[in-house]
Structure formats: structure tokens, C-alpha cells
Design a binder for these strands. Structure first.
Length: 867
RNA sequence: GCCGGGAUGGCGAAAUUGGCAGACGCAGCGGACUUAAAAUCCGCAGGGCCCAAAAGGCCUGUGGGGGUUCGAUUCCCCCUCCCGGCACCA
């Protein structure tokens, strides 16, 4: 009757809830459980997941993110590393103010309540964080260091104030950084609200000072996804070119400086084009009502195009100012136009127009009948000329080179030589760019230059819930920084929050009115607060030394954890590929230059996980397809939720959440549990591996082989590609293999293996399970009688000998098509394998009567080629 | 337009170095257990064709077309579509 017994025991269900609650309670009781060690002799490993905004509750994206990080942290602990695995809260920001307006709850209260709730969720999910290092950015013990850094930036000229056009979101009632404006001109938080332009005095951080280094060091980040590096390269947008001054011919000596990447084409410039908002445009229009009206029209068009996301698509057109400018290279008078496709915020807002060698200029010139003058000829034409005439390059002159015809224009590549370009004629484009830039500098009308798309970082926000900018305005002394000893400038608590009328702090007299740090006279505080991206630019340094009240962190401790390359592994969503990660890189370089750090970069290896989607679409409340982690934990357990988020898809790809899928994982976990519960209790805690591999039956050896193959597979996944979906699949295969050989593990079977064998297999299975399903793993570990803490138990060693197959299957192809499979012992010599393959009856039937052309054996497969 | 990433059964996916395509799981189908259902366990399963059926056999198949190779999901060329980033960037 053993079968009956089996069935009975197997029906005993794994009560995930009971088990998980039990362990959650135990883990909470020990605050030091996941603490990083001080003065450890172990190698350090800093694994970090991006800190969440405390919006109220975790979503599935968080669960996925943290499941990846937690599995890695646990794996590293088990491999003997001193692991730093902290968590915190990016807790300043607008939603708290919106919530305050909506439910009459102060932002602070709302935020702290959300944090408490999300922390409970994280603990219930079993994430192994060192909570003693928790960082909450909205608390003064953190944001005071934002203020401190601001003062340091200010001292170094890296923070400055300027009146500037800012992006203003009417719904947020605040200024947005360029990075927070979507490509359709809308606010990143209000995707249907157009961002407007306003002039305000703003604080800026000089990120452009590091533009070159930020770009260059991208090449030193091989541990980052290529995609992210590319996005940052695009964002920084470095462009080498030349500034050239065109003097206005008519009006009083005004100069138009154009930026061009193709100064080699300047002899073909047949007009100068100004942005409608260019100062010279404004000046020329000032005395010319007709022109003024047309320019206004062009500006309106640009604004409209930007707003409707049609920039780049609007028809190019412009207006001739009637004025002329002088090309300093050849003294030619060229007309000055104003055009709707010239942008004021790139380069100098003015270009030289070379229709023959630029698509847009060509289009524009065709439309308005502006002359098209070719000054570059393709190199192969030049070569033809050279070989035909056997002449030297120096001799080549405009007469001898036949310009290509108009219908081949515009010719825009650099594979050409100059013609009709005075003393530069005959040079290659690349040579010409260099020589002509040098010429401009020598003659004093221009120079080689580099422009960036990257702009300085505007950090002022007319909002309440952020770090107060520690500056004071005094009628006598002007702009005065708050003294370091007076930090933090505390954000007041009882503030009326509205979305209009500028910063809410303006209406708090006890905050606003202060004394000047210099003269002691009456003064006003800056009422703007900092962009929350300031908070997240350096928070991961604070984790290393979270309770330091004399400095943002201790340099020596930070250097221990960051080494010279930064965080060992950073994990988060690709949506932070640009903003957060560029600001963080900037901040690190700034702190390095302050002498606080040795590392040039904050993050050595970056992993960007895919999104969690449902029914093929991003989860959103509007679509009603949101999956709640709480519900998943309640229905399937935390282990199942975590493991499914790793199993359903490779971590870097999007994951389509399916409730039936997580159900499958729950079943798997229940089967694992059943595998341990049934049969005789084995106390592996007291077991010694007292079984000889050679005494095992072939089938037991098969299990052992599978076990070691699984160890090898999962270890490889952690070291390499992080395809945890296949790690979990391997665990399933291992369990399936064990279940297929039940009698080996059962006392009542025909040929039970030694109990020590069973204990060995089960013990290692638990170790392999631990990073993915910590609750069940801990429970089983205890059931096995283990006394040590599982989370630092040594990761099982892979034994290649034990993993090796005793016999291997060799597929046999005839003409590349699979016809049979033969079984041979490993190491069988090629002639024998081929002989055996040819002897196979199925192979015979395909080979008979044909001529064997080739016999291939690769060690894995045989292919017989016949004719 | 430029840059990056993709496309494999009904679905999520696997195949890490050019070597048995579809591991593992979901859904499905058949069976066991049950009064029944659920749960659980066992089994089948890319598509098409041959065969009364089964066993078995044959052909075909990784977005499309070509190439290299004994052999291509994998390498090369061309094309289509999807996702993401940048973009009148001078």
C-alpha cells in the first residue's frame, strides 16, 4: 500500500502564508540580520536597487526590481561577500503636495505614512535590506546635506543664478528642467499639459562644466547597457564645429556669429539665416514694422510646432530682412534671412546657409531662388581627375574639376574635396575644416569650438515639498549664502499649499523673513526649493554612513564601498537612463573634485530591467490592469510573487504578468515542499556526507548528476547573463528529476539510496532555492535540522566530475537532417563513433546505394554527407 | 532621418562557442483519484501528410528574400514590421 501513503502525504498542502508570516516575524526581530559588517576581511559588494518614490504602495515593477537585487544580494552573501544592500525613500516631490490639496493631509504626514506602508510591504516580501541605513530624503538629517552641497557648488561657481526662460507647467505651477519636458512639449507628470515659457530668476548647476568628461567616461563603463550609454551620448550631444563672425553690411557694425560643423563649405554660403528670436533679428525688426510682423509670425509658428510635436516637420520658410552680411573668408555679401527652422537654443541661433551641401539649406534655397553654389566635389571625381591628368593635387584648380550637376546636389558627405574655395581649394573636407578653423582664429573672426546639447541644470522649483535653497537676499549685500553652521534651513511644517501664486513658502513670513548672514540686517530667504533629482544624485553615498551628522558621509567609509569604480551593481528601470544617471555621474565628479571621493563614476555595473506589463500594455489605473503586490502575496505568497517575476521573462525584457503563470510557481513551491515532507525525516543538520558516490545505483547517480548540472547552471546565470528565468527552470527540472525517481528517496522503495544521499540532495536544493524563494528555503532548512543561518550558508560547489554524463547521445544526421541518435561513452574516439553511426539501421537506410562524400564528427554530432 | 533593442508553438519563453529547434512553465487534451467538482498525480502535445487505427514513417518549420557552410534561430547582405531614445542639432 505504499502508493496510498504517497498520495496522502502529497496532498498535504504547503501553507505559504503560515510559513512566511512566521519567518517575517523572526527576521523583523533581528535588526542586525542583513547589516553589512564593519572591518570585514571579506571582499565587499555593494548591490543597490533604485530607491522608490513613496507614492503609497509598491507596484509590480518594484517587486521585479527588488527581486532581482535581492536574489543577487543573497547569492553574494552565500558566496562569502560583505554585502551592502540598503534601501531608502526618494520622498520629496510634487505628489505629496497634490495629495495634500486633495485630502487636506500635510505632505510630511502623507509621505511618512506611505513610507511606513511600503516598508511593511517590503518586509513582507522578504527583501533583505539593512534598514539601519535607511535614507529618507525629506528629513532634515538628509536634506541638510543637499544644502551643504549647494553651498559648496556656489563657492566653486558651479551654482549660479540667472534670469532665464524656463519651462513652466501650469498644472504643477512650477518650473521644470529640460529633462522633465516630454518631446511633445508636455509636462512629464501631466502628459496632456503643454509646458509654457516664462522668465524667472533661477538657480542653475553648471553640469556643462563636466560635459566633456561625462561624455568621455561613458567609454569607461563597459558594465553599462549599450542602450543607456547611447542615450546619454545623444543627450549630451557633443558637436565639433566652428564659430564664424559675419559682419552686417548695412546696420551699425553688428556681428552675426554662426555655428557650423562644415566650415569647409563656407565658400558656398549664399545666405545667413537667423532664428526668429535672435537678438539681431529683434534689432533689425525693431525699426521695420513689416519685418517685425513677419518675425512674430515665425515665432508663433515655432511655438505652435513645438506644442504640437511637429517640430522638424513644419514647412521651412522665412523672410528676407533686406540686409546683408559679409562672409569673412571671401568678402562676399550675402543676404540675411530669418527662418522658422533655426532654433535659438542650439549653437548660436544663426547659421550660414550652404544650399549645395546641406539638405535643409538646399530645400530653402530652391524655394526662394537663392543661388546654389557648389564648393565640394566628390573625392572619386577628384581621383578621376588626378589619374586622367597625372597632375599633382596642388595643380588641381576649379577649371579642371567638373562640378557635378545640380540634380546630384546637395552633396552632404565628407568624402569630397574643395573647389572654388580660394586658397583652400583642393583640400579634403576634413583637412579644410581644421585649416579653415585655424585661419579664422588667426584672422580673429572665428575659431574652432564645441557645442553641447546638454544644458546647465535648472534646479529651482516654486514648490513647497523640497529642500529649501540655502540663500538669503539682502537689500544691502545682495545674494548671500546661509552660513554652514546655520544649516539646515528647515522646511516649515504648517504651510498652506496651493498650485498657484508661486512658491508656497513666500506666504510663510516666519520662514521668509530672516537676517542677512553678512550684515545682520533684515533679509528674505530664497523661497524656491530644489529639484528632487538633487536628492537622488548622491543618496547612495549616504547609505555608507547614514547617521553622520558632521558630514554627508565619511570619505574613508564611502571609499571602502565604492572602491575606485563605484557601486558594484545598480539595478533599476531604464526610465532613469538619462536624468538620474547623468545627474548622479555629475555629482560624483563634483564630489571627487572636492576631495571627498576617489572614484570618477558612481556605478560600475548597471542593469536596467524591463517593464512589467499586463495584456500587452503598461499597467495603469486608467486601463484598469494594475496587479497589486499585496493581492499577489495574499493569493500566492511572497516567494511565488518574487519567483514568478524572475521566471516569466529574462530580467532585461518586458514581463507580461499572468495570474495563471504565478499560479504555476505556487504549484512548484508546493511540490518542493512535498518532496521534503514525504518519506522519512532527515536531519541533514547532523548528517555527514557518508555515502560513496560509487555505491549509488545508476539512477541515484543520475540524480546527483542533475544536481550538479543545476548548481553549474544557476551559478553561471548569476555570474553571467542573469537569465534567472532559466535558473528557475533548472530548479524545476531538478525537482522533476527527483520526483521521477521517488523510490530512491523513499524508505519503502525497492532500492533506497542512503539517507545521507537524500540529505545531500535536499540540502543543496534548499541552498539553490534560497536566493529566489527565501521563505520556503528557510523553512526547509530548519526542517532539515540545520542550525546555521541559511542566508550566509555557503553556496554549493559545482563538481564538474559529478555533472559529467556517463553516456552521451550523439545525433546522427545524413546530409544535415537528423536521422538517428546513437549512445556512446564519453571520450569515444571519432572512428568508432562514425563506425557506430554508419552501422545504425536508420542511417543505413538513408546511406544505402549512395556515395559517402564526407563524414563529420564534432564531438557533439555526426553528419554523413552522401551523394 | 540617425542611434539602440526586438520578431521562435495558442501564450510567456529556451537553445551561452554555428551542431537534436521549442527546455521550463501557462493554457489545452487524455487518464487516475472522487458520488461529483476542485485540488493533486500520471501521460500527450510545433504544423502538415502517409497509415483503418496504433506503432512508425515522410515532409516542413525560428518575420521575408538571398548568401556562406557538411550543417544557420545563431554568421554575412538586402527588406518588412514592432519597441525605446534623439532629432529642422546647423
Amino acid at each position: 500500500m505504499p502508493q496510498e501513503k504517497d498520495t496522502l502525504i502529497r496532498d498535504e498542502r504547503y501553507n505559504a502564508h503560515q510559513v512566511e508570516e512566521k519567518w517575517a516575524e523572526r527576521w523583523q526581530a533581528d535588526a542586525s540580520l542583513y547589516a553589512a559588517e564593519r572591518n570585514s576581511t571579506k571582499p565587499k559588494y555593494y548591490v543597490l536597487e533604485m530607491l522608490p518614490y513613496p507614492s503609497g504602495a509598491l507596484h509590480m515593477g518594484h517587486v521585479r526590481n527588488y527581486s532581482i537585487g535581492d536574489a543577487l544580494a543573497r547569492y553574494m552573501w552565500m558566496n562569502g561577500y560583505n554585502v551592502l544592500h540598503p534601501m531608502g525613500w526618494d520622498s520629496f516631490g510634487l505628489p505629496a503636495e497634490n495629495a495634500a490639496i486633495a485630502n487636506q493631509t500635510p505632505p510630511r504626514e502623507w509621505t511618512l505614512r506611505n513610507i511606513a506602508n511600503m516598508k511593511t510591504q517590503m518586509k513582507r516580501l522578504g527583501f533583505a535590506y539593512d534598514w539601519s541605513r535607511e535614507v529618507t530624503t525629506c528629513l532634515p538629517d538628509y536634506y541638510r546635506w543637499n544644502q551643504w552641497f549647494f553651498l559648496k557648488l556656489y563657492q566653486r561657481g558651479l551654482a549660479y543664478r540667472k534670469k532665464s526662460k524656463v519651462n513652466w507647467c501650469p498644472k504643477c505651477a512650477t518650473v521644470l528642467a529640460n529633462e522633465q519636458v516630454l518631446s511633445n512639449g508636455c509636462c512629464w507628470r501631466h502628459e496632456d499639459t503643454l509646458v509654457q515659457q516664462r522668465e524667472l530668476e533661477q538657480w542653475f548647476v553648471r553640469t556643462t562644466k563636466y560635459a566633456d568628461e561625462l561624455l568621455r567616461d561613458l567609454d569607461r563603463l563597459p558594465g553599462w547597457p549599450e542602450k543607456v550609454r547611447t542615450m546619454q551620448r545623444n543627450w549630451i550631444g557633443r558637436s565639433e564645429g566652428t564659430l564664424v563672425e559675419f559682419k552686417l553690411y548695412s546696420a551699425g557694425g553688428d556681428v552675426i556669429t554662426v555655428f557650423t560643423t562644415r566650415v569647409d563649405t563656407i565658400f558656398g554660403a549664399t545666405s545667413v539665416q537667423l532664428a526668429p528670436e535672435h537678438p539681431v533679428t529683434q534689432k533689425l525688426a525693431a525699426g521695420d514694422p513689416e519685418l517685425s510682423a513677419k518675425v512674430a509670425q515665425l515665432i508663433a509658428e515655432q511655438v505652435q510646432a513645438k506644442e504640437s510635436d511637429k517640430i522638424g516637420e513644419i514647412e521651412k520658410h522665412g523672410v528676407n530682412t533686406g540686409h546683408f552680411a559679409i562672409n569673412p573668408y571671401n568678402g562676399e555679401k550675402v543676404p540675411v534671412w530669418v527662418a522658422n527652422y533655426i532654433l535659438m537654443d542650439y549653437g548660436t541661433g544663426a547659421i550660414m546657409s550652404v544650399p549645395a551641401h546641406d539638405e535643409r539649406d538646399y530645400e530653402f534655397a530652391k524655394k526662394y531662388g537663392i543661388p546654389i553654389k557648389q564648393v565640394i566635389v566628390p573625392t572619386d571625381v577628384g581621383r578621376t581627375f588626378l589619374s586622367d591628368n597625372a597632375g599633382s593635387e596642388a595643380k588641381m584648380s576649379d577649371k579642371n574639376v567638373r562640378p557635378t550637376h545640380g540634380d546630384e546636389l546637395p552633396f552632404t558627405t565628407l568624402d569630397g574635396k574643395l573647389t572654388d574655395s580660394g586658397e583652400f581649394t583642393g583640400l579634403s573636407c576634413e583637412d579644410a575644416i581644421e585649416k579653415m578653423s585655424a585661419y579664422a582664429e588667426q584672422k580673429g573672426f572665428g575659431k574652432a569650438t564645441v557645442t553641447f546639447r546638454l544644458k546647465d541644470w535648472g534646479i529651482s522649483r516654486q514648490r513647497y515639498w523640497g529642500t529649501p535653497i540655502p540663500m538669503v537676499y539682502c537689500d544691502k549685500d545682495g545674494v548671500v549664502p546661509v552660513a554652514e553652521k546655520d544649516l539646515p534651513v528647515i522646511l516649515p511644517d504648517k504651510v498652506e499649499i496651493t498650485l498657484t501664486g508661486g512658491s508656497p513658502l513666500l506666504r510663510v513670513p516666519e520662514f521668509l523673513n530672516t537676517t542677512c548672514p553678512k550684515c545682520g540686517g533684515p533679509a528674505r530667504r530664497e523661497t524656491d526649493t530644489m529639484d528632487t533629482f538633487v536628492d537622488s544624485s548622491w543618496y547612495f553615498y549616504r547609505y555608507t554612513n547614514a547617521h553622520n551628522d558632521e558630514a554627508p558621509f565619511d570619505s574613508a567609509i564611502a571609499q571602502y564601498w565604492f572602491g575606485d569604480k563605484g557601486i558594484d551593481q545598480y539595478i533599476g528601470g531604464v526610465e532613469h537612463a538619462i536624468l538620474h544617471l547623468i545627474y548622479s555621474r555629475f555629482w560624483t565628479k563634483f564630489m571627487r573634485d572636492m576631495g571627498l571621493l576617489k572614484n570618477d563614476e558612481p556605478v560600475e555595473r548597471l542593469f536596467t530591467q524591463g517593464m512589467v506589463i499586463k495584456d500587452g500594455r503598461k499597467m495603469s489605473k486608467n486601463l484598469g490592469n494594475v496587479v497589486s503586490p499585496d493581492e499577489m502575496v495574499a493569493r500566492f505568497g511572497a516567494d511565488a510573487a518574487r519567483m514568478y517575476s524572475l521566471f516569466a521573462s529574462p530580467p532585461d525584457r518586458d514581463l507580461d504578468w499572468q495570474d495563471t503563470g504565478i499560479e504555476g510557481i505556487r504549484r512548484f513551491l508546493a511540490r518542493v515542499y512535498a518532496f521534503f515532507v514525504e518519506g522519512p525525516p532527515v536531519q541533514s543538520g547532523t548528517y555527514k556526507p557518508e555515502y560513496a558516490v560509487n555505491d549509488l545505483t545508476p539512477r541515484a547517480k543520475g540524480i546527483l548528476r542533475k544536481l550538479h548540472q543545476t548548481i553549474g547552471k544557476i551559478t553561471e546565470d548569476f555570474k553571467g547573463r542573469w537569465h534567472f528565468n532559466t535558473s528557475v527552470a533548472a530548479l524545476m527540472e531538478l525537482l522533476n528529476a527527483c520526483n521521477a525517481e521517488q523510490e530512491i528517496f523513499a524508505l519503502h522503495g525497492d532500492a533506497p539510496a542512503p539517507l545521507a544521499f537524500r540529505a545531500d540532495v535536499q540540502r543543496k536544493l534548499v541552498l539553490l532555492l534560497a536566493p529566489f524563494a527565501p521563505y520556503l528555503a528557510h523553512e526547509l532548512w530548519e526542517m532539515l535540522g540545520e542550525k546555521s543561518n541559511l542566508f550566509k550558508a555557503p553556496w554549493p560547489k559545482y563538481d564538474a566530475e559529478l555533472a559529467k554524463e556517463e553516456e552521451i547521445q550523439i545525433p546522427v544526421q545524413v546530409n544535415g537532417k537528423l536521422r538517428s541518435v546513437i549512445v556512446v561513452a564519453p571520450g569515444t574516439a571519432e572512428p568508432e563513433v562514425i563506425e557506430r553511426a554508419l552501422a545504425d539501421p536508420k542511417v543505413q537506410s538513408f546511406v544505402a546505394g549512395k556515395q559517402i562524400v564526407k563524414k563529420i564528427y564534432t564531438g557533439k554530432l555526426v553528419n554523413i554527407v552522401v551523394r
